[in-house]
């Protein structure tokens, strides 16, 4: 199971994460992304979405290992 954190101060509201993993990420009315379901997509999609964040606002851990 992945643990996902979004740094709201870094998020620019690009919507890139919700494009790549729409079951997992969503944009709030304030234009900042949030995790709506950490298991909303296959893990590889969630990881791609995390890596694709334009401002590196997304951090992902598997168990205790930081993978994004």
């Amino acid at each position: 199971m992945l643990r996902i954190e979004i740094d709201a101060t870094k998020c620019m509201g690009s919507g890139n994460c919700s494009f790549w993993a729409s079951g997992t990420f969503d944009l709030g009315d304030d234009g900042v992304a949030f995790v709506k379901d950490p298991a909303g997509d296959p893990e590889d999609k969630v990881i791609l979405a995390g890596q694709g964040c334009p401002t590196q606002a997304i951090a992902i851990w598997r168990d205790d290992e930081r993978i994004v």
């Binding site: 620019m12 690009s14 919507g15 890139n16 494009f19 790549w20 791609l48 890596q51 694709g52 334009p54 401002t55």
Partner: peptide
């Protein structure tokens, strides 16, 4: 599919990509 760089990346990533 995996992220491409066509819309740029970083703080200037395309505002109109969607």
């Amino acid at each position: 599919s995996k992220p491409v760089i066509s819309f740029g990346v970083g703080p200037h990533m395309c505002l109109g990509m969607h």
